[in-house]
Amino acid sequence: MDFFDGILNNKIFLTSVLAWFIAQSLKVIHTFVVDKHFNVSRFVGSGGMPSSHSAFVMALTTAIGRVHGWDSGIFAISLGFALVVMYDAAGVRNAVGKQAIILNKIIEDVHHKKEKKITEQRLKELIGHTPVEVVIGAILGIIIAKLVI
């Protein structure tokens, strides 16, 4: 069995990808409902409701726990990995997004004052997640893994 056959037959990995796919699809739907416009780019974008990072890692962790046992070493590794990813999504990446908002405002102010032309493009502001987006993504991942595995 080669690498690609292994991946395509790995139910744990495919469950995680399914959780990611559903979370990304829900972002498109959420944007349509909240902002009243269809934005298909939300399917591949980071940030927003729900966290697809959280859905992926918690589906992975839950599937590993169900298959290999909640007391297995691989479950412990996966859970540690999931906690780091979710902390990063809600903490560090969210802070970067807030900084991008402030920097974009500074750039706009400089442009309006015509003091000096800044050629940098606007920074992406929707990078991280709120804690609620992370928790909803994590719950989504757990539910999907429980349904599939």
Rank of each mutant, 00 (worst) to 15 (best):
H37I: 03
F56T: 06
I107K: 15
Q24V: 10
F4P: 06
H68I: 00
F3D: 10
V96K: 13
L147E: 00
G48R: 04
A23V: 11
Q99D: 04
L8W: 14
M49I: 08
G73F: 04
E133L: 02
E120D: 10
V96T: 13
I118N: 09
G128S: 10
S78N: 13
D2A: 10
F38Y: 11
I12S: 06
M1T: 03
W20D: 00
F43M: 02
A63S: 15
L126I: 14
Q121G: 09
W20S: 04
A55T: 02
K27E: 01
I149G: 11
N94K: 06
I102G: 05
K105S: 12
N39I: 06
R93E: 01
L8T: 14
I149V: 09
K124M: 02
N104G: 15
P50K: 00
Q121P: 03
S46E: 03
A63G: 15
A59W: 07
N10L: 07
L26M: 13
L83V: 11
F43N: 04
V92Q: 07
A100R: 13
S54R: 05
V135W: 03
A100G: 08
V135G: 05
D2R: 07
I22W: 09
S41Y: 06
L123F: 07
V40D: 06
F3V: 12
F56W: 08
V85H: 09
K11P: 03
N94A: 01
K36Y: 06
F81R: 03
G128C: 09
L18Q: 11
V34D: 07
V135L: 11
L123R: 05
I136D: 01
G69K: 12
K117D: 01
A82G: 13
V92Y: 15
I64N: 14
Q121K: 14
T130Y: 06
V110N: 07
D88E: 06
A89Q: 00
I127P: 12
H30M: 14
K116V: 15
G80T: 14
G47T: 05
I107T: 13
A95H: 09
I118Q: 01
I143F: 15
G128L: 05
Y87A: 11
M58W: 10
L18I: 09
A95C: 04
E133N: 01
V17M: 06
G141E: 04
R42C: 01
